[in-house]
Design a binder for these strands. Structure first.
Lengths: 226, 226
DNA sequence: CGGAGTGTAACT
DNA sequence: AGTTACACTCCG
């Protein structure tokens, strides 16, 4: 496994995993695991991977070192929110490790997509990636090797969000918008639009109200990209 | 400090230190530190500096980036012999990055500082390759993961065993022996056997007791090598 | 300036 | 003690 990039079944198609043995120094003999996205970007840690993949992929039970899913890891996800409720309202949003989902209104599982859209955080993000990231994130999600069922899941999840938010007060508007934008970006690539249509047909009632905002968001984003 | 060559108190007279800030790219804002010998030769890293200065200057606690001596670094010395940690029987002899001579010196209480304060050493004579070359052989041996280095390590390790068997003494004896070996290796410019002899002649009183074991150990190793 | 390779603080 | 995650070094 040393020094050879190999496919990783637990990640979307095109991703590679590599294990490199340290050959000198204090830590000689230990190994480092790297992942490569389809585009060739190198990932050196799980948090980095999470950051890149965003909320669309739950890495909670993904073992970075082995490259496999470990259900046993599920129990370890916790402790992010508890600091919040102990202290004040502020506190930095946890952009790290785990699932962004819980951050927002606990009732409505809100993806943290917006975090992805704000690389201006302390992380050493580069300007360009900011735009690119959101997109890739979704492609991968759809192309994920976990077969069609995943795709379906994803779409449904996205749709659920707007639906739930509709009935809620203004406070959640931002989040709704963000979701819309994310979806728009998602579809902006090309054939995706078609997919959405299909989705709408499946659940017209759900998408009906939200459609307009979605389009708007998309237009803007598209221009910005260009 | 940027872009300006300044004196470096931790190095011999005539040496200059320069810090250049990176102005673009992923690492924008970071800086690169360079040193210049009195003759103008540029040094871009600590290993390069060590190679050039040789064993006479202990850079173990020299912080390349700041240009200052950091005693705190002393404990942080790392070593190349990682397999050793499995055997717990003895305290680890510290033959690491820092030149072996240091260890010997510690026994005889020889501060490196004075060497530093005497630029009249080999330092000021940059042009002369004659001195520089012979030394490089050693540096490479000890400091690099090259074959030569491995050989050296093996010799040292091999010697530890015989010594223990002889039952010369506890604790310090080990280190003394190792130091002796290290010194011998260190000072030699040719075959190791010759080195040992030279060391003994230089300090008969000091080396007397240890000499025999050393020779034995070495002989064995030599055979093994062949 | 980039980035593979290594060091090491912070966690578990 | 062992692992993780990422800062840093060194050299191309």
């Amino acid at each position: 496994m040393e020094r050879k990039r190999m496919d990783c079944p637990a990640l979307p198609t095109g991703w590679k995993k590599e294990e490199v043995i340290r050959k000198s120094g204090l830590s000689a003999g230990k190994s480092d695991v790297y992942y490569y996205s389809p585009s060739g970007k190198k990932f050196r840690s799980k948090p980095q991977l999470s950051r890149y993949l965003g909320n669309t992929v739950d890495l909670g039970c993904f073992d970075f070192r082995t490259g496999k899913m470990m259900p046993s890891k599920l129990q370890k996800n916790k402790q992010r929110l508890r600091n919040e409720h102990l202290s004040q309202s502020k506190g930095k949003p946890d952009l790290n490790t785990a699932l962004p989902i819980r951050q927002t209104a606990s009732i409505f599982k809100q993806p943290v997509t917006k975090v992805t859209n704000h690389p201006s955080n302390k992380v050493k993000s580069d300007p360009q990636r900011a735009i690119e990231q959101p997109r890739q994130l979704f492609w991968e999600k759809r192309l994920q090797g976990l077969t069609a069922s995943d795709v379906t899941e994803q779409i449904i999840r996205t749709m659920e969000l707007p639906k739930g938010l509709q009935g809620v007060g203004p406070g959640n508007t931002d989040e709704t918008l963000l979701s819309a934008i994310a979806s728009a970006l998602h579809t902006s690539s090309a054939p995706i639009t078609g997919q959405l249509s299909a989705a709408v047909e499946k659940n017209p009632a759900v998408w009906l109200n939200v459609t307009q905002p979605l389009c708007k968001a998309f237009m803007v984003t598209d221009e910005d990209i260009r």
